[in-house]
Design a binder for these strands. Structure first.
Lengths: 336, 336
DNA sequence: ATGAAAGCGCTAACAT
DNA sequence: ATGTTAGCGCTTTCAT
């Protein structure tokens, strides 16, 4: 009786060589496909590979080649739908090229973020993509990463660090919002109220700054990127006896919290309050009402990350920035 | 002038040995912490480690130890908030023990799922956790996985495969829903309507079966786990001139789509239609109205996965099932 | 308690 | 075109 497959010794390249009656180098050649060898021998070897069900041990290969064909991706929080969508997009892009994307969520925790960097470096990833938790405090992690491996910042960057970045043009995005307001909103009946979030991240700050620049007299509440903050900020607004306005937020998750709190308290969106988000995560279009927001070019961002990773020479200090253009998506929460 | 850190040769255990004036074996011992050696030598070695900023190459270690301290997690779709929450929970649990959880999303695609298995096996993960895409069609992937490495099914299982499983008691969950309906709903004014999803997954099927068992005469619509399906199913219901009822769904994402479509069309929840979900993903509590649903014990599931992985001997065919109890969470969409 | 040396599985010089 | 061999970085016998 054959033992269970589990726990059986794995077949190695040596077993294949034995089975095919060739040297292990020949097996290696046959597998690499692009090196000089006789076609019939190659066929024979590949037959043995098939017969034995041989799969190369990628750990052995990586040790020898000093290349793992993996990149690490560190996200602040997988439960934020924007990051999970971005993660999926990046994985998809790299999987086409045979590179595996390993993902670690830092859980919005600087220490976990640092550990994630160390872990990835130890595992010899070929590159590292980071969405830093904090514009300042993540500096140490980003520095460590970039000192040992080709590293890219995505969506957010760390202040004062000379490192390539791929992201969306937050300023342009907020200008689209401002134009939308100028065009369709009567600001006498609907004064602008700003709810910020992620103040310690570059994207949160950029978005908030641009809003304040255009509406310096508006009420501003600042918190973090979360549903809960959206609700809390709304409670504060209502407690000030404000009963109408255009609430502009720096992220969809905040906007969803805002709408939830407004409607729970019997206020109408968009009649009493207009609400505008940023990101265009999946749930934006099925909220009640659907959410007017800024759509980030996820696919373009993933493509840029991919080409940067394969272009920017490892040993260079060339710092490049790819800032991609967002789009306004007008939906029910702030109609035209 | 010191060259940029980037691209510099990494320091190896050999460099540390040289610096400390000992053999590489001694460095290895010092690092492993739990082996007989003189404390002062250990201190000296660790000082050199610090001085040089040495970090072990985990690829080399893995090749030698035949153990990578990683497990693979294959999820059907990272954008489904239930799976991203579960992913985060599993990662969190394993990170405490120094094991990295590598995540690949199969994008609801059987071929990608199969490739994910192959990739993880090649990378010599110590274990594999799978949430299979399909109750039948994922058989090949699961079989391949379990034939080479300790494998666990999570949340969903493949039909007819003798492999350990951790999940939630879907039947019990739906019984909680039925009890809730029996207790609080007048079924004359609010007949039960069933919207299924994930018919090709074990959890989808179990939930749907239990519902049909208790309400055999109800209208049943079956589709997949998505917002879009919830909307579409709702359109079908409304097209039949049904204007009230209790809509029970097999997943929150469906229920959210349902509520969205109902409210868009001017129907009140819960006055006209009650809506009930399953999973209790984060957005359930901030939908408008908030969603009555079944809460899955994510933390317990992650804990169980962890202990199974560290308990069930690799070479055994012992098949174990851990079925955890869900809870009913009553919110506005179907109040008490 | 410490060092020398073998070897994990693989690829890439180098030799033939 | 194919085989032989060194060695990637590490841990672990096995000597001492």
């Amino acid at each position: 009786m054959e033992a269970s497959g589990l726990g059986r010794d794995n077949i190695t390249i040596r077993d294949v060589a034995l089975h095919a009656g060739v040297s292990i180098a020949t097996v290696s050649r046959a597998l690499s496909r692009n090196r000089p060898m006789s076609p019939q021998l190659q066929k024979k070897v590949l037959a043995s590979v098939d017969a034995l069900g041989y799969r190369p041990n990628l750990v052995g290969r990586a040790l020898r080649q000093k290349k793992t064909s993996t990149i690490g991706l560190i996200v602040p929080d997988l439960e934020n739908p924007f990051f999970s969508a971005l993660t999926q997009e990046v994985s998809r892009r790299f999987s086409k090229s045979g590179t595996d994307v390993l993902v670690i969520s830092a859980d919005n925790n600087l220490e976990l973020e640092f550990r994630a960097v160390r872990s990835f470096l130890g595992r010899q990833v070929d590159g590292l993509v980071m969405i830093p938790c904090d514009e300042i405090e993540s500096g140490e992690s980003v520095q460590l990463a970039s000192s040992s491996v080709s590293t890219l910042q995505l969506d957010r960057f760390v202040d004062g660090i000379d490192l390539s970045f791929v992201g969306c043009d937050n300023t342009a995005g907020m200008n689209l919002v401002i134009n939308h307001i100028n065009e369709f909103v009567d600001e006498n009946s609907h004064p602008v109220i700003i709810i910020g979030g992620g103040g310690s991240t570059s994207s949160g700050r950029e978005r908030l700054q641009e809003l304040i620049f255009h509406r310096p007299r508006s009420l501003v509440l600042d918190g973090n990127f979360s549903f809960a903050w959206g609700r809390q900020a709304t409670a504060e607004i209502l407690s000030k006896d404000i009963r109408s306005g255009t609430i502009v937020t720096t992220a969809d998750v905040i906007a969803l919290g805002v709408m939830s709190a407004l409607i729970t308290n019997g206020h109408s969106v968009p009649m009493d309050f207009r609400v505008i988000g940023f990101d265009d995560v999946g749930v934006a279009y099925l909220a009640n009402p659907t959410l007017t927001t800024i759509s980030q070019p996820l696919t373009d961002m993933a493509d840029s990350i991919f080409s940067f990773m394969n272009t920017v020479p490892q040993s260079s200090r060339i710092q490049a920035r790819k800032i991609l253009g967002p789009k306004l998506v007008v939906r029910e929460s702030s109609p035209a």
